[in-house]
Amino acid sequence: TELPWAVKSEDKTKYDAIFDSLNPVDGFLSGDKVKPVLLNSKLPVDILGRVWELSDIDHDGMLDRDEFAVAMFLVYCALEKEPVPMSLPPALVPPSKR
């Protein structure tokens, strides 16, 4: 059964707007562009490190639109005191990456 993506479409729209505001190159944002945005959340760096590991699914050091949405989703969860999981829950893997 097709698992619906945990990121809701209205949240995705919001994340896409942030993604585009960071001037992606070929649809990708490098770590140094994403880093200030995630640091803005005031979350500890080790948490952000784990958020990055989980969202940079292809481990290419950059986030595409979907990976960025996963990162933002995890940051918002952490801000609501939801612990960042050790591994990416299947529902969070973007449909494009399954």
């Binding site: 770590g31 880093k35 995630l38 490190g49 784990r50 990055w52 481990h59 591994s87």
Partner: peptide, 13 residues
């Protein structure tokens, strides 16, 4: 997998 986190691709490590 436990994300070990290679600093080469992770800007936070």
């Amino acid at each position: 997998q436990f994300p070990t986190g290679s600093s080469s691709t992770n800007p936070f490590l």
